[in-house]
């Protein structure tokens, strides 16, 4: 399997607290640390975790929205941060993004036609007539009414706007779409429509997705593999069924147990105690140890490596990953 996208040891940090005259006193947030994953052609990888875990930052880096962080992101073998001028546009064309909020990700002063034709014009994908035909096509594919082209985003509902954003991402015929919480601003009945649309596009065009979400039910629906992040690091990555049926990291277990489900009634929840620590003061050793029910002395001292155990496709960063499987 050759990877379409390969992320290796990606590390991204942001300075906080404004500009200091004493650079050595400047505090730094490590938003993403040492994150590695691959996405195969046609595969959907979901990146899950709670707010502040770095999933959005990792996703944006994958789409090339940050300049030269540490580590590499390669697309079809080319490092996207060090591209020769000539191959910048083709690679950027091939990776597109869909953002969370369809109210702020569309320019309110552009018509739907202008929004959808802009990426085609930038990438010189055809004559004016071809572009018009292509835009007509896209509108149909995402299930928007044919008379949408001359209307403005405010005339559409949230679900329809997200369809416009998806059509815009599809316009330059990408191979990978980075979708950052594409459902969370939408109503329940509209979420299923958008999930179905993403699924259909994947089947018909062989698209790959990096699907960033905190909604584990939606992730289970759409993902082939799932990566769980906690405080900037990957703690577990596995195939969907393996992860949901047999989560090994105590954080993943807690996350899955916290998902509300219909038909369970009032129940005693197994809770992950406490809050996400500040990313400015990441705990020593395993970052999850202050909230972990299994934490031992070693967890405070040593950071567990993300590694495979009995199943080669299932990586876990926990000192006790094996023990839990036996239990």
């Amino acid at each position: 399997m050759t990877a379409l996208l390969s992320v290796k040891e990606l590390t991204i940090s942001f300075p906080v607290g404004g500009v200091s005259l004493l650079p050595r006193r400047r505090r730094v947030i490590q938003a993403v640390q040492d994150v590695s994953f691959d996405i195969a052609p046609g595969e959907t990888l979901a990146l899950v975790g709670e707010s502040g875990c770095g999933k959005t930052t990792a996703g944006r880096a994958t789409a090339g929205l940050y300049k030269a962080p540490k580590g590499t992101v390669s697309f079809r073998g080319q490092d996207i941060f060090n591209l020769p001028r000539a191959s910048r546009k083709p690679v950027r064309r091939a990776i597109q993004m869909v953002f969370q909020d369809p109210f702020s990700s569309l320019d309110p002063r552009m018509t739907v036609f202008e929004i959808l034709s802009e990426p085609l014009k930038i990438n010189r994908m055809g004559s004016a007539r071809e572009i018009r035909e292509r835009v007509q096509d896209l509108i149909g594919q995402v299930g928007l009414p044919a008379d949408s082209l001359n209307r403005y985003p405010h005339e559409f509902s949230g679900g329809q706007r997200q369809r416009i954003a998806i059509a815009r991402a599809l316009a330059p015929e990408p191979e990978l779409i980075v979708a950052d919480e594409p459902l969370s601003a939408l109503d329940v009945s509209v979420q299923s429509q958008v999930l179905n649309l993403l699924g259909a596009l994947k089947r018909e065009r062989g698209l790959s997705y990096l699907f960033i979400s905190h909604d584990l039910a939606a992730v289970h629906h759409i993902a082939d593999r799932v990566a769980v992040m906690y405080l900037g690091r990957l703690v577990e990555i596995a195939g969907r069924d393996a992860l949901f049926a047999n989560p090994r990291h105590p954080y993943t277990q807690g996350l899955l147990a916290a998902v509300p489900r219909i038909g369970q009634g009032r129940r005693k929840r197994t809770l992950i105690a406490g809050d996400l620590p500040s990313p400015l003061a990441v705990p020593s050793g395993c970052a999850f140890h202050p909230r972990c029910p299994l934490a031992q002395e070693i967890c405070r001292r040593e950071r567990p490596e993300l590694k495979t155990h009995s199943d080669v496709a299932h990586l876990t960063a926990c000192h006790f990953a094996e023990r839990k499987e036996a239990a």
Binding site: S189, S192, N196, G199, A217, H221, F244, V259, R261
Partner: peptide, 16 residues
């Protein structure tokens, strides 16, 4: 209720 993706019962296409 039908439109919700369900972890215990995955369908390829969700009802809408």
């Amino acid at each position: 209720i039908a439109t919700l993706p369900k972890i215990e019962n995955r369908q390829d296409e969700l009802p809408v």
